[in-house]
């Protein structure tokens, strides 16, 4: 195999890794104030892609306006999910891990409704303004500007999320809620507002991931579950709650997947990734970064 081929595989691995990292980060955003892993998060990526197809390709809206609408719609659905599927269970301690079932149920409803509405065929979505899907060659490196855009947007958005938690009072308040819900309330912080906000933002962020990834992977209703799993793998490798870890984990998953595509069929690739994650969880249960979860259940 030539250097060019390896580099091309790496570029596509890093690009997909950036997408997986964004999914992982959206899982983190919803997890922080609630300790709930939103299993519908992958479907919000799917919705972002499908909405983008409907608005930009169907209605021919310009990219920025279309994206803005997608984010608003996905945010509203995220809020709806929080109210319907999460808040009632968090309010009742007897439900234990009831949210696993309820968020999964929500994702099933979203997925199958989308199947009805959009059909199951893959659709094309326009690239980010200024980028294109045409291949550019620089030395041994071949890539498209859309791939570059995805990588840059992923890095920038993760930096923005980290800045939010580290440097804004609201961000710190989310961390405070994560640590001690009642303690936060006694300091005037409303866990309810922050939880709703986090779910809306996480859904919008996932949808944004869908908008920028769709030109590369094509928009179809079946991408959500796959992205949820890959995002989870990135999260498991990087450590729960660790956004930069998620980026590294996503890159690792993307590159393993992409490089193994040379000799392995899709089935073997999935088995290989699953084996890597299982082995890692056995050796380092809290991810490569090793940040301990606050509490095991």
């Amino acid at each position: 195999m030539s250097l060019e081929d390896i580099l091309a595989l790496l570029v596509s691995g890093v690009t997909m890794g950036a997408v997986y990292a964004m999914v992982a980060v959206s899982l983190n955003i919803a997890f922080k104030p609630t300790n709930v892993f939103n299993l519908a998060q992958g479907e919000f990526v799917m919705l972002g892609a499908m909405f983008a197809w409907g608005l930009m390709t169907g209605w021919s809206l310009p990219w920025l306006a279309g994206t803005a609408l997608v984010l608003v719609a996905a945010g509203a659905l995220g809020l709806l999910e929080e109210r319907l599927a999460v808040a009632p269970l968090l309010a009742n301690a007897r439900h234990h891990h009831g949210w696993i079932i309820s968020t999964l149920a929500f994702s099933i409803v979203v997925l199958h409704t989308s199947d009805r509405v959009y059909g199951t065929d893959p659709q094309a979505v326009p690239p980010v303004p200024g980028a294109s899907l045409d291949m550019v060659q620089i030395g041994a490196l071949t890539f498209s500007t859309q791939q570059v855009a995805v990588i840059v947007l992923a890095a920038l958005s993760i930096a923005a999320v980290e800045w939010f938690y580290r440097s804004t009072l609201v961000g710190k308040a989310v961390l405070a809620v994560a640590e001690d819900r009642d303690g936060a309330r006694l300091n005037g912080i409303s866990p309810l507002t922050l939880t709703m906000g986090s779910f809306a933002v996480a859904a919008a962020y996932s949808a944004f991931t869908g908008v920028i990834a769709a030109p590369l992977v094509l928009a179809s209703t079946s991408i959500g579950m796959m992205l949820l799993v890959k995002g989870f793998m990135a999260l498991a490798i990087g450590g729960v709650g660790n956004n930069w870890g998620a980026l590294a984990g996503g890159m690792l998953v993307g590159c393993v997947e992409s490089l193994s595509s040379v000799s392995a069929t899709p089935g073997y690739r999935q088995v290989l990734l699953l084996a890597v994650v299982l082995a890692l969880l056995l050796v380092r249960p809290h991810g490569l970064a090793g940040a301990r979860l606050t509490r095991e259940v």
Partner: peptide
Amino acid sequence: LRLSSWYFVLITIAFTLAVTAMLADL
């Protein structure tokens, strides 16, 4: 056995997807 059980949910999803893909490959 050591981790919170939501990990298991996602592992089982990944397994289900992998099994489906393997049936075609093998």
